[in-house]
Each structure stands twice: as C-alpha cells, then as structure tokens.
Amino acid sequence: MCNLYTMTATVDEMRRMFGPFEGDTTNLPPFDEIFPGYMAPVLRRKDDGGLKLERMKWGFPGPPAAGSRAVTNVRNLASPFWRNALQQPSRRCIVPVTTFCEWTGEVGRKQKVWFGLTPEHESPLFAFAGLWRPGEGGPFMAFLTCAANRTVGEVHPKAMPVMLRPSDAARWLDSPREDACRLAQPFEDTLMQRVG
C-alpha cells in the first residue's frame, strides 16, 4: 500500500501535462513528502467541464465499522464504500505525482524505495487515478491501487497505485464507470524505474 509520495512539479508543468485549469494557479511549493492526512494538490472537473486545482486531505473518513480510520487507497472497486464515487464522474480526480514510495525490510529497519518515470519522459510528472469527496474541514481524496507490475512487485508484490498517462486523464475523469475502471491496470514496466 502506497503511503508516501512527492509532487514537486510546477503549476506550468501541470498545465503542459494535463491542460488548463483554474484554482490555485500561483506556483505551488514543492511537496517533498506527502503522507496520509497531509494536504496535497488534486485536479478535478468543475461543473462547466473545466479543470480545477484544489488542495485536498489524503484519506477518506473511514466507516464506523472500521473505527473511522482514514481510507487512503481504493483497493476493491466493487466495494459499496466506493460505489457512489466511482459511478459519478464528478467525484473522480487526478492526483499529480512525481515519485512514490514503497517500503522494504523488516519492521524497525524499513527502508524507502522510490519509483518514478524513466528519464526519456518530458517531465517526471504523472498522476494517480483518484476519487474525492467533500467533507467537514474541506475535501478528501484517495487513489486507486491495482496489481503490482514487475518493477514495483520486486519491493511490494501486493499492489501499486494506478498510474495515469496524460492521455488517460480525460478518460478517467469523464468515462462511464466500467470504461474508467479498465484503467486500473499495472503501469508498463518499460516506462518506469526505481529512482532512489
């Protein structure tokens, strides 16, 4: 389960990658470590179809049956907990990312392993497929996970975040549920690498 990522791209890089948007259009500070419970930049559709940049808290408020602990990753797309958000394109979002971390080693001696895109990409920026919801104190977000590819699986074999190419962003945000959920596939190994 991914519980740490970075987003160090500029607003201009985000515009080049995902298109124009409204919202916090001044330069964002670098987000060198984003953990669950932290605020992070997120892009979502507005009512008029354009994109809006907002900061959202990472982690949906959890169900009472689970002790109300925040839910950060969307693992089971058939779960009733996510059904409403997946069904409504307006509740989908893209979470800009430059690298993400999985942990290796035993408890007490764990080490970070960072993953990102290969160097031939124009920018290290990509996105996770996310869901968001309004709530007390502001909006919340979580992102989808899927089976791990070989690159991530060598460190964390259970799962990896659903990574979107820029060309996939509109499909995730706008398509009917079944088509959007087809994007929940392991990212191509040839396009990513360990970066630290």
Rank of each mutant, 00 (worst) to 15 (best):
L4G: 13
Y5V: 02
Y5P: 04
T6H: 12
T6D: 14
M7Y: 01
M7C: 15
M7F: 02
A9T: 07
T10M: 01
E13M: 06
E13W: 11
M14Q: 11
R16V: 07
R16D: 12
F18L: 04
G19W: 14
P20D: 15
F21C: 06
G23S: 10
D24K: 14
D24P: 00
D24R: 15
N27E: 15
L28K: 07
L28D: 06
P29C: 02
P30E: 11
P30T: 09
F31G: 10
F31V: 06
I34T: 11
F35I: 00
M39G: 09
A40R: 15
P41L: 01
L43E: 11
R44E: 09
R45E: 14
K46E: 12
K46T: 15
D48R: 06
G49A: 07
G49H: 05
G50E: 11
G50P: 00
L53D: 13
R55H: 11
R55L: 06
M56I: 00
P63V: 07
P64A: 12
A65L: 01
A66G: 10
G67V: 08
S68Q: 10
S68Y: 01
A70M: 11
A70D: 13
T72G: 08
N76C: 07
L77N: 11
S79C: 12
P80S: 08
F81V: 11
W82Q: 12
Q87N: 10
P89H: 10
R91K: 15
R92D: 12
V95A: 09
V97Q: 12
F100A: 04
E106K: 14
V107N: 08
V107M: 08
G108S: 07
R109M: 05
R109Y: 10
K110T: 07
Q111C: 00
K112P: 06
V113C: 06
V113G: 03
F115C: 02
P119H: 05
E120R: 09
P124W: 02
P124E: 10
L125N: 08
A129V: 02
G130N: 07
R133H: 02
E136C: 01
A142W: 00
C146A: 13
C146I: 02
T151A: 12
G153H: 07
E154I: 01
E154D: 14
V155C: 06
H156Q: 05
V162Q: 03
M163K: 04
S167P: 00
L173I: 09
D174F: 12
D174G: 12
D174N: 13
A180Q: 01
A180V: 01
E188G: 05
D189W: 04
M192D: 04
V195H: 07
V195W: 03
G196M: 03
